[in-house]
Design a protein around this nucleic acid. Structure first.
Lengths: 138, 138
DNA sequence: GCATCATATTCCCAATTGAGAATATGTCAA
DNA sequence: TTGACATATTCTCAATTGGGAATATGATGC
């Protein structure tokens, strides 16, 4: 019921592209906020705010060095993300073989009349052809 | 700079816990919307809407079976999530060893210029102790 | 102290989000 | 056709979000 806040939930924290870019910039080693700002084009307050979210999610660690702050990746929370996605590995392995078998089936019969509107009683494809719009699946 | 919409971006789509639960429910095989509703406690319109988002992200496939609809996981987009998170594997592998080596380096007379913020000569941990609240890092 | 650099915080705003209720669409069965 | 069932869509609402500008805090050097 409670909405997952980006300030706490790793998946939410990682959902923002700017934050992923920040993490990527930090992947090679510690960076100051100024260095991060240089690598990704984003105003300083935004970067600081994103860093705050990443900090709240435990994804970065801070250390003071003089008047600057060194940020470093703290990758451990990402393990959950990886493990979760990895759970579905079989589903993306299976995907191609499914497409393949479907293609073979379709090729064996000449033309397909209509697809998702009516499933053929004998063999109903699990994965229908997917409408694509702007490079994304609809 | 455009905000990533959940209806298109995989990371966003996966950021919602309810949607992750739906995917988990589908992980074992095709399910009807009603079956999904039964496995996760959430009102039907919410489930349908979440399924719409998952569909828009290419994470599920639909197939009609009579008056019901069978949803199935389409895991391929999750590969990007996994690969991205996997990029940081070294950061959770090397986490402890990094603290260790840095502690050793610093202990060996930390020449590292001025850590004017109370660099306790002897050990300056890269990762400060992390405040935890409700099992999450703050 | 004072000016300056580095970073964080606050405030405002438009857009997105997710829940919930009500309603609409579509399909089967009698 | 009528009615029950399965699912989707619409609408409203409150909360969250991210950007931008302005401002605040904090450390350094003179």
């Amino acid at each position: 019921m409670p909405r997952a806040r980006a300030a706490v939930d790793v998946f939410q924290a990682v959902a923002d592209p700017s934050r992923r870019r920040i993490l990527l910039a930090l992947a090679r080693g510690e960076r100051t906020v100024t260095q991060i700002i240089e690598s990704i084009t984003l105003p300083q307050p935004s970067v600081s705010k994103h860093l705050g979210v990443l900090r709240a999610a435990g994804l970065v660690a801070v250390r003071r060095r003089g008047r600057e702050r060194m940020y470093a990746v703290r990758g451990e929370p990402l393990r959950e993300v990886r493990d979760w996605a990895d759970t579905f590995k079989k589903h993306w392995d299976q995907h191609l073989s499914r497409i393949k078998s479907r293609a073979e089936r379709t090729a064996r019969r000449g033309k397909e009349s209509r697809d998702s509107s009516q499933a053929t009683p004998g063999k109903a494809p699990v994965i229908p052809p997917w409408p694509v719009w702007k490079g994304k699946y609809l």
